[in-house]
């Protein structure tokens, strides 16, 4: 447990120090959301209707693009070798890294949502609903994206390839995230059903993500 705690603390610390990218994700999120009105027009009624979808798309892209360096940074400086060799199971180490990444890069997206909801003319209920669904859904994005980040290490490629690999896998999260937000705002579906599925997707990703990432790291090292 101390080993995993140490790993989480280290990753968060690095993300927050100079050179770390924790807040760039939020900036990206902000920029993507600000771009949308320029494409669809400043009509507040339309923006209110599209708001949850825009926020979810922005959060999806922001959380995937920041995953790029999750394992490559450790691979380049040799830390990954030692993490693989250690007495801590690699699956748990992967989960710890993903958790640290979510705290440093995913949670700020949730925190930024109310401000962005203001820009999109969402009322308090709608903003709350989107923030809640993001809180439940972004961990799934991180843990699914981690698989892509692990593959990126083995292939010595990152960036766009990672996005292409992982985006299709995150479609269910997007569907139920937006559905739950819309259900809370306009109905007619009850909020509970899609939100439960969203939580289930997150819980499933906690299992699948670390195992898949650890497997691809083990077989990909050379």
């Amino acid at each position: 447990m101390t080993a995993l705690g140490a790993l989480i603390r280290r990753d968060i610390r690095i993300a927050l120090r100079v050179g770390g990218g924790a807040l760039i994700g939020v900036l990206f999120f902000l920029t993507v959301v600000v771009l949308m009105p320029f494409a669809v027009g400043p009509d507040l009624v339309l923006l209110t209707r599209l708001g949850p979808a825009i926020l979810w798309l922005g959060a999806l892209l922001a959380s995937l693009l920041t995953l790029d360096r999750l394992f490559t940074a450790d691979h380049e400086d040799g830390s990954l070798d030692l993490i693989v060799m250690s007495r801590t199971p690699l699956e748990l180490a992967c989960a710890a890294k993903a958790l640290a990444h979510w705290i440093a890069a995913g949670l700020p997206l949730v925190v930024a949502t109310p401000v962005l909801g203001l820009l999109l003319n969402l009322d308090a209920v709608a903003t709350g609903a989107v923030a809640l669904t993001l809180l439940a859904g972004t961990p799934a994005l991180t843990f699914i994206g981690m698989i892509g980040a692990a593959l990126a290490v083995t292939m010595h490629r990152g960036g766009l390839l990672l996005a292409v690999l992982v985006l299709p896998l995150s479609i269910p999260v997007l569907i139920f995230g937006v559905a739950a937000s819309q259900a809370a705002i306009v109905g007619p579906l009850p909020f509970g059903a899609p939100f439960s599925i969203l939580c289930a997707l997150s819980l499933m990703s906690f299992v699948v993500g670390p195992f898949a990432a650890a497997a691809s790291l083990r077989h990909g090292l050379d």
Binding site: A6, R10, R13
Partner: peptide
Amino acid sequence: RDALKPALSVDENLSFWSDFLG
């Protein structure tokens, strides 16, 4: 490769590996 993080202090780097290797 040294498995060091330039953003962390010397002591933080060592403490991390000490805690993590356990």
